[in-house]
């Protein structure tokens, strides 16, 4: 038995549909007979071909939302469809800044529960969800018990994206009901921050720094090493909380999930909070002065030593090649 119809909330950036969206579409195909997408923006039709390639038959187009944040209008449109009896059996939403807004508002509008931080799904008559706990050492399985479509918020990199080669998706408008005051927040201007290397969650190499760096200025070593390896710099929660680096650099439970070919942890002890975001990396290298640091339990190569010595030496060695 499979599920009849799944909707995937499809997010796009300047460069097209996000990778997480493609991952969710791939997963949805495995569990449901019909996969449809919900998208918004002035140019949804331009995504119809890619959506079709990933198995989407119809994309429900919320349309141009102008300078509004997506949370209220997209959730409003989906909730209206559910109320009219035209909703799906399950709704998959990417764990992202806007995805969580949509999930939260939709949950209230449709009075439906939401399961978040999902990293695995098991199909059948209904979906069983998997959630990592305690730094990913254990997996909790759960499912919805009530009526109505479940709302599933799924973390990036939980599935490998794979096109299925379908025809372009049909575009069908999905109207937004009156949202009243809930839609009153307005985007005045958008700022793109310059980035020299690859994106943190797409980089083949990630070099992360933690409290062991000692002070904020030493994060420059992490950035330099990342640059030398064509990688992206990441951070533990401790140094984000301390204000050394912005939240967008954070790897972990409350930050990004990364699965690079090489993850190099500099002065990170390996709190459960951090481990859950990086233990899926193909190869893990850790430098830490405490040989009992939990990070060494997941490291393929662990150097028990002083980051202030090992990292500069590593930078020199790479530069002189």
């Amino acid at each position: 038995m499979t599920i009849a119809k799944i909707w995937v909330v499809a997010e796009a950036s300047e460069t097209g549909l996000t990778t997480t969206t493609l991952e969710l579409l791939t997963a949805a195909r495995e569990f449901a007979t019909t996969v449809e997408a919900v998208a918004w923006g002035a140019d949804t039709a331009t995504h119809a071909a890619t959506l079709g390639e990933y198995g989407v038959s119809t994309v429900h187009d919320v349309g141009d939302i102008g300078d509004a944040l997506p949370g209220a209008p997209v959730a409003g449109a989906i909730a209206a469809a559910i109320a009219a009896g035209q909703g799906p059996d399950a709704i998959l939403i990417p764990t992202s800044y806007d995805g969580r807004d949509i999930a939260g508002r939709l949950s209230v509008k449709a009075d439906l529960p939401v399961l978040t931080n999902i990293t695995g799904l098991v199909g059948g008559d209904s979906l069983t969800t998997q959630h990592p706990v305690f730094g990913g050492t254990q997996i909790v399985s759960a499912h919805f018990t009530g009526q109505g479509p479940g709302i599933y918020v799924i973390r990036a990199k939980s599935f490998a994206p794979e096109p299925s080669g379908g025809a372009a998706a049909a575009v069908s408008p999905l109207s937004v009901p009156d949202l009243g005051n809930t839609n009153a927040a307005v985007i005045g201007s958008r700022h793109v921050e310059e980035r020299t290397g690859p994106k943190l969650d797409e980089a083949a190499v990630v070099v992360s720094g933690g409290r062991g760096l000692g002070e904020a200025a030493n994060y420059a070593l992490v950035e330099e090493l990342a640059k030398l390896l064509n990688g992206a710099p990441g951070a533990s929660r401790a140094i984000v909380d301390a204000g050394w680096v912005p939240y967008s650099n954070q790897v972990g439970q409350t930050g990004k999930t990364v699965k690079p070919d090489v993850y190099l942890a500099c002065g990170i002890s390996g709190a459960t909070q951090h481990m859950v975001g990086m233990k899926g990396s193909k190869n893990i290298i850790a430098i830490n002065k405490d040989q009992d640091a939990p990070i060494f339990t997941v490291a393929d190569l662990g150097i028990v030593g002083d980051v202030h010595k090992v990292v500069p030496a590593l930078i020199e060695a790479l530069k002189s090649r």
Binding site: S13, E14, T18, L69, S96, Y97, A184, A185, V186, I187, G188, S189, R190, H191, V192, E193, K199, P246, Y247, S248
Partner: peptide
Amino acid sequence: QTESGYDEVTS
């Protein structure tokens, strides 16, 4: 915070 930087938002 956004994926590519940040938005100035008022409410």
